[in-house]
Design a protein around this nucleic acid. Structure first.
Lengths: 243, 243
DNA sequence: CCGACTCAACTGGTATGATCAGTTGACCTC
DNA sequence: GAGGTCAACTGATCATACCAGTTGAGTCGG
């Protein structure tokens, strides 16, 4: 009902504005940024705030800063990491970037079977019980929004159960992107959310320690969503050239 | 022969020191950091540098900063993304974190077939030729270091050929981690680097557009390295608890 | 003319101190 | 005891000065 009012510091706005400018292509690889003192004045912020924003761009490998030299824009396609996906998935004007969505769906499809497999080899009985309970809740959910929330909780717990640091961190990265487009996916992915059978299959496989079966059920499950998503894209008019 | 002398700004050192303290577990989820003015004096840096470092920690979701309230340490296992892997993989004392290595190997194994599959559907003839040339160079390489460099170049080009934003960004993230442990892996992964046959198989599959074959060859290839790595871990004394 | 050195005018990096703006909790009032 | 007040915290922003690398134009010696 009442959503929290989002607040953004100046440094955050600097980061977002410059970041989107680079991702949009208005600043190309090799371009040199104005001096900090100049840029700060142009943006109407203090140099300190500007530097805090620049530090984040630097951490994201979107720019390269050299003491004494000019700050240069890097090729984000070759250097930017998964943490850029949230900024990439929704453009400044609010448009959805299909390439980014496709990307997150591909990663999900590839990783899900591995996560299930690792969970089958590593999950504790308590974690398996917890997953079982989440399946029951998912089955009982009446609305698509509720199913989405439950399904997400299931995967969160499954990834935790995998005990694999790589899967955990990658999942966290993907989630940040996923949350930005959450409402857009509620309807499209609903067929997947309704496929509780596969999730039950995963849980059964965890109990018996059958890694192959867990992976197979996971693959079957996430491919439902991926198919739905590509069907949607194919039914829409061709994409504008936003990446 | 002569390696560049690494330089680190104060803000970078603040980021690394606090980040490692959190990842090491000396600062736990829910702990509150001292006030910026206090912390800056304790670390012997000015407040601006401290804030630049904190901004990066905040971007990495390692801490939560609230205007007017205390800065709080978050649960990095639930919030940190792939960009934290480089800091995790080598501890402050120089020790290798096996969980992080295992993680990067798992991700690699899961993603490689998808990358090859996408490349088979998307690579241009020029890109395929380029990959072919890289195979030839890899075959001709005499030393393990050289093979490692060539093999890395092959995957860089293959990921680019996939035309998939998700794979590209995930690969960039993994590469940052990979580079930090590069010399450690040279010998262990050499059996994989010598398996040029599978890479040739991928290239052939790209030419014929055979996605399944490309994925199969890729899987076969990376599993060599993963098996070598788990064999190594199993032959070593049990791991200390440096997760 | 050319190579090498000098140096001034850039660039980012660090420091200090003041002020604005939210949050918190003790305390006072009714 | 519920609710309002306010002082003392917290981070956010600002202005200014100075330190420390980089760059390139200009100068000097050959």
């Amino acid at each position: 009902m009442f959503a929290a009012i989002p607040r953004e510091s100046l440094a955050d706005r600097v980061y977002r504005q410059l970041g989107e400018t680079i991702l949009r292509g208005d600043l190309r690889s090799g371009d040199k940024l104005p001096a900090e003192r100049v840029l700060a004045e142009k943006l109407g912020v203090n140099r300190g705030a500007l530097r805090e924003g620049l530090k984040r761009l630097q951490q994201a490998d979107l720019v390269q800063v050299r003491h004494g030299g000019a700050t240069e824009v890097r090729n984000w396609r070759e250097h930017a990491g998964l943490e850029m996906l949230p900024l990439l998935v929704v453009s400044g004007s609010g448009e959805i970037n299909r390439g980014a969505i496709r990307g997150i769906m591909s990663l999900r499809t590839q990783l899900a079977p591995g996560v299930a497999r690792a969970a089958a080899l590593h999950a504790s009985p308590e974690q398996t019980d917890s997953l079982d309970a989440l399946c029951v809740q998912l089955r009982a959910a009446m609305h698509a929004e509720e199913r989405q929330t439950r399904a997400h909780a299931f995967w969160t717990e499954l990834v935790r159960s995998s005990g694999n640091l790589g899967y955990q961190l990658a999942f966290n990265s993907l989630r940040r992107t996923y949350e930005r487009v959450w409402p857009v996916l509620t309807r499209t992915l609903d067929p997947e959310f309704r496929d509780v059978e596969s999730l039950d299959g995963i849980v059964r496989a965890l109990r018996t320690g059958d890694a192959d079966s867990a992976a197979a059920h996971a693959r079957q499950h996430v491919e439902i969503g991926e198919r739905a998503m590509s069907a949607l894209f194919n039914s829409l008019p061709p994409d504008g050239d936003n990446t």
